[in-house]
Simulated assay, not measured.
Amino acid sequence: MPLHPSPRPDPSEELKAVALRLFVETSYAGASLQQIADAAGYSKSSVLYHFASKEALLEEALTPAVVRLDSLFQGSIGRIADADLRGTFVEDFIDFLLVYGLEAHIIINQGQSLAGIPIIDRATDFLRRLSDSFVNELATPEQRIRLGIALSGAAYVVATGVAMQATDQAPIEEARSALIAVVTELLVPFAAPAVTL
């Protein structure tokens, strides 16, 4: 009985994955639709069949991450300052990064240059609101700086693949555990200072 080749993945999903990778490697502005088509093994007309423009491709590629970002941050208010809830927030944040690392990289590193694109504006608005809530929630500049370094550092490590380089020898769970431990350790000093009377 002849073997059947495995079917090629859904073209739109494949194109979104390739586009995300190229948008990170060369930037959104630096990646053309032709380069995306070539990297995915399609014609440019095939890309345009699935996506009306490069902006539409970006919009479709980022939407799942931005929807998840919204739900993550909607539930984050009050969790950073509360020692019991902080651990769950850190785990949720690391899990988000492990699933949407490329998307996070694009939003964080190219957000300003991509202002005006609706999905980018939506994501940066979430980040701004989150930042505003943390400023109000955290008592000291040191706490705010610790949080910024912890979250942005984790995003950088995941987006650049530093955390994943060990996955050849170790399962993803080890990288996840290490990221959670380091971010949590950075946030340990969040305990409220003792009030003296």
Rank of each mutant, 00 (worst) to 15 (best):
Y49L: 12
D82K: 02
P189Q: 10
E137R: 06
P171E: 07
L138H: 07
F134M: 01
A166Y: 06
S131A: 07
A65T: 07
L151R: 00
V182R: 06
G41E: 08
E55R: 02
Y28K: 03
I94F: 09
T26R: 14
A150C: 10
R146S: 04
Y49D: 01
I149T: 15
G87P: 00
R68M: 11
N136G: 11
Q165W: 08
A52C: 11
F96E: 00
P11H: 04
F134Q: 06
D92I: 02
P7C: 02
E185S: 13
Q74P: 05
S76G: 07
T160D: 05
E185D: 09
D95C: 09
G116A: 01
Y42M: 04
Q74A: 11
S133K: 00
R8A: 15
L3V: 07
Q169H: 07
R144W: 00
E185H: 08
D84Q: 15
A155P: 03
F134E: 04
V99D: 12
G101A: 10
V67E: 13
S133F: 00
A56Q: 10
A52S: 14
F23P: 03
A191N: 10
R176S: 11
L179G: 02
V183N: 02
I120Q: 06
L187E: 07
Y49S: 00
P9M: 12
L187K: 08
L179Y: 05
L102T: 08
I180F: 07
I149F: 04
D70P: 01
G148R: 09
T196C: 00
L33T: 12
I117P: 00
H50G: 09
Q74E: 14
G153A: 12
A31H: 03
R86V: 14
T140K: 03
L127V: 14
A115Y: 10
F190G: 04
D38A: 12
G148P: 06
S131H: 11
L48S: 05
E137M: 01
H50V: 12
D84A: 11
D132C: 03
T124F: 09
Y156M: 02
P64M: 01
F134K: 04
G41W: 13
L151N: 01
A159Q: 07
F23E: 12
L187W: 01
E14I: 02
R8M: 10
D92A: 13
D125G: 00
S113T: 13
D10L: 13
A191K: 03
